[in-house]
Simulated scan of single mutants.
Amino acid sequence: MHLLKPLVALLAIVNPIGAIPFFLHFTQNLTREQRKRTVRVASIASFTVIATSAIAGLQIIEFFGITIASFQVGGGLLLLVSSMNMLNAQQAESRGSDVGDGQAKADAGDSIAIVPLTIPLLTGPATISTMVIYADKTRTLFEHAVLVGYGVVIGAATFASFAAAGRIARLLGRTGINVMTRLMGLILAAMAVELLSDGLTKLFPALAGGVPH
């Protein structure tokens, strides 16, 4: 197994820089400290998902009796719900909550860091399936350890990207963020449809036969 291929694939799939607009949207009502905590949680969660997928991804999926295709459909539905909120300019998690409730907002930040930022935006079905495939190709303990180590690289890249989000937000201003939020909501909806389409055609191959060429 060529050791650099998994890292290149992971960086392309996870694309933490591309997730910055979503991070800005989902954390817009958090304080600076709460946003920093969200960055840390998302980085650690990204590493955890990748490392766990490399070590025991296939076994976990088999244990629950689910397939990557089913995971894709579930992830697609999550993304679709998030995209609808973004298109309607609704704020994530904190809608209808008291702004003064600091602990609730901190908990919301942790929740946002896991779903939808880490799963399925950063480390969705494509990332997990990629790690499972490459883990299956490993022949030595060293190669397996390298795969787990790539999780550290992705976690660090996520941290660096999200840490720069504040400067990007100040540059864009409130109007710029609102415009970008709706644009990225549309893109996220398209990503959700792609995930759902791919997962559904794998679950129901007959659907692929009905697609016009």
Rank of each mutant, 00 (worst) to 15 (best):
G176M: 05
A157H: 06
S111N: 11
L196K: 06
A189P: 09
A206E: 15
R170M: 08
D110H: 08
L200H: 08
A169T: 10
P116C: 00
G199Q: 02
L200Y: 07
D101Q: 01
T123E: 05
A165T: 03
F159H: 15
A126W: 02
G176I: 03
I112Q: 14
I177P: 10
H144N: 12
D101L: 01
G185Y: 06
F162R: 08
A145I: 08
K202A: 14
A106D: 12
G124L: 02
L203F: 06
A190M: 11
A104E: 07
M184C: 14
I114F: 11
F142L: 15
S197G: 12
K105T: 05
V148T: 09
K137N: 12
F162T: 05
A190P: 06
S197D: 11
K105Y: 08
P125I: 00
I168A: 15
A164D: 04
Q103P: 02
M191V: 11
L147A: 11
G210L: 10
L195D: 10
Y150H: 01
I177W: 04
A169V: 04
G109Y: 02
A145Y: 07
T175H: 10
T181D: 12
P116W: 00
A157Q: 09
D107G: 10
L172G: 14
D198H: 11
K105N: 08
A163Q: 13
I114T: 12
A106K: 08
A113F: 01
I133L: 12
Y150N: 02
D107E: 10
I119F: 14
S197I: 00
A104C: 01
T123H: 01
S111G: 13
S161F: 02
Q103G: 07
A113C: 01
D101S: 01
V146K: 10
A206K: 08
L183R: 04
A160F: 05
L196V: 15
F159S: 12
M180P: 13
A164K: 10
D107H: 06
A145G: 14
M131E: 05
A190W: 04
S129Q: 04
M180K: 05
I128F: 06
P116R: 01
R174D: 15
G124Y: 01
G100C: 01
D136C: 03
M131T: 08
G199L: 03
D107I: 07
M131S: 12
H144F: 03
A157G: 09
M191A: 14
P120W: 00
A165E: 09
M184E: 08
E194C: 06
Q103F: 04
A106M: 12
L122I: 03
A145T: 11
A189S: 14
L203M: 15
A135D: 03
